[in-house]
Design a protein around this nucleic acid. Sequence first.
DNA 1: AACATTTGGCAGAGAGGATCACAAACCCGT
DNA 2: ACGGGTTTGTGATCCTCTCTGCCAAATGTT
Lengths: 409, 409
Amino acid sequence: MDWDVVGQRSETVRRANLSAIVRELHLRGPLSRSELVARTGLTRSAIRVLLGELVAADLVSEDRRAHLGTPGRPSPLVHANPTTAVVLALDIAVDSCAVALVGFGGEVLALQRVDRPRGHLSVADTIADLVQLAGPVLAPTRGSDALIAVGISVAGIIRRPDGLVRMAPNLGWRDVALANQLGGALGVQVPISVANEADLGALAELRRGSAVGLDDVLYLSGEVGVGGGLIVGGRPLTGAAGYGGEVGHFPIRPDGAPCHCGSVGCWETEIGERALLRQAGYDQGGGRDQVDALLADAATGSPSALAALAAVGRWLGIGLAGLVNILNPQIVVLGGLFHRIHPFVAATIETELDRLALEASRALVRIVPSMLAEDAPLLGAAEMAFDALLSDPAGYLGRFEPLAAAGGV
Amino acid sequence: MDWDVVGQRSETVRRANLSAIVRELHLRGPLSRSELVARTGLTRSAIRVLLGELVAADLVSEDRRAHLGTPGRPSPLVHANPTTAVVLALDIAVDSCAVALVGFGGEVLALQRVDRPRGHLSVADTIADLVQLAGPVLAPTRGSDALIAVGISVAGIIRRPDGLVRMAPNLGWRDVALANQLGGALGVQVPISVANEADLGALAELRRGSAVGLDDVLYLSGEVGVGGGLIVGGRPLTGAAGYGGEVGHFPIRPDGAPCHCGSVGCWETEIGERALLRQAGYDQGGGRDQVDALLADAATGSPSALAALAAVGRWLGIGLAGLVNILNPQIVVLGGLFHRIHPFVAATIETELDRLALEASRALVRIVPSMLAEDAPLLGAAEMAFDALLSDPAGYLGRFEPLAAAGGV
DNA sequence: AACATTTGGCAGAGAGGATCACAAACCCGT
DNA sequence: ACGGGTTTGTGATCCTCTCTGCCAAATGTT
């Protein structure tokens, strides 16, 4: 049921403390030793020993910090080494594919995104595209042990914990064991995890974006469909099998239009890309270019474009009011399509929230556009890939030591 | 952000292990020592030392178990002592008030419920009623240190962590600091926690009811209003300030009827008690008696009663489909009103779920009536009151020792 | 230049669980 | 009834990890 039904021992303490240090350095950036002491509540001695191991493993480095004018012996600045441990992140979106190499500490060492024609691309073709894209990005890591994991974001319903792609309607996929196939194609031997694009967008905003430091977050993702990523009490809501967060398929208008999912009146049918384009009189299947055109027209005051945005904004507000009531989040982050239309819908959303949401929850929530924009799911995939290192650094300490690896015991 | 940013030490390990043992005994009932060894993963030696402390504090006892036919030395049965540590639970519902005394291990030592006329009862009157009700129940604990905490369930929106009753529309309360007032009136010096009735119903079903052993649970509560209690990843979803779970106010029919909360088309306006009674042609304000009459009529085949139940069942299914999509729970537990009408709506709900919910999540969820029925929130309040003991038993070890208490150090 | 302040370094202490050998208590077969 | 096999409780000792306390180092201040 939870971690605490399993017995703890001294080793557990070490692991937790090492994890706390590594997590702080990865998430909050460089810190002095004394700041680490303050943050973790450990003593200088304990920090020293633990840091010693991390330094020996080349995961972190200590630098003499420039004098900062305070009395007392200066504390060296500890920072994560971005090239000792890196992860590969992949994003399989509807209009594009992307790949990134992210170093421990969060530095983005490389990032490539290519647009793709919309439509049902086969799994094999997609994998070929990704391998081609990842090749040069991955090149610097060949021959070293720096690559520790791969994370993949997919616009679809993904089963946890095995990462099976149960259904990706906009890709035309069903029950695809993506991790296995990609692992072989990429020629990497590290763990590969797959997750839903919205869930990873939420994780990215939580760790690197507009929700840093918060515990209860709703990330709303708009690709062709509408997805949601939920952070509850500081941790991702996955549900029983990883299918949680599908807010786009709440039947918000049960007498409304049929949804491609088989249901009727889903929120997506009112706020999705197709709904927006249809109401504004654009080609529903046109995708990204059509949305660009719509936004350009709206900027020049086109009444039909503005009316369509107002309608979508209204339905956005209605649905968000319900979700705010259910989840009582501190922040709602608008990603994807909603990030792009945010300037045109922000006021309407606030109005609807005032009208419909419970006062207590309403007063606490802010609605903001995504900070990471299009790259949120990609960077979230990287963060997911770092999770194993962050929660148990001890398991990784042996693998980076360049000297100890050569010599025997 | 989370527990693991704070440094761990040996003492933490002891606390966690003690907590694991106490939790197992409280939640799973009597276990042999060897079963505890298996469950916690600790060694016999460690279990022995930890149990020694618990026995010395009189929190648990060891009995020679009746021989059970297996070879090897028999392992003594360890069980929680129900009278060493007890909690008082109070339930302030719309139609009734209840009080219970629950012992460590979960035994209900006393339970009293009294009906109350519906309407706006003052805080002072309610407190007086509760004190009168609690008096005899609490009598056996006077003069001892057995009472460790009080938990209160209220049909309203409660702020965490201080338990302020922000709004209880069916009681007519607003911003009531209930814990302070009740503590004085009851004459107890122990911590008092207050929480929402649906949240506690969910907790009770998770620990003692139909959701035992599950991690993702939606408890749907129907008093006059409709509330929800969510268990996500094994722990309660509270949201940023404790207001989470208000599923009754999802705008499921935005062109529908105004809700007393100020919004329009809330789920509650379609499935709440008033909606049920209205559609069946009964007095909306009649409350419990009217519902009983409706159910009796439905049992004899009354078309209007059955039609109203069918309509409510349909809207129940529609809303649950959305919630199942969002939360991907393993189980949905119907409490309160929905527990009572379950036989009449179960089939309709399942049909609507088949029609509207995403296949992946739909396949995993079961819809069941509450096992604990009317007492779920009350028993949940008791479980909440036990939380401090379960998560840090070490803090309580000193207070029960009858011998050590007398002699000083 | 002397002092105050903060921090790193290091040895010893303390806490807590694991290990291991042994004894106790049960079963079963003869 | 008796001895072997099996499982479990007991207790001494060991191992791991952090804390405590003292000293040295590095900086600012007077």
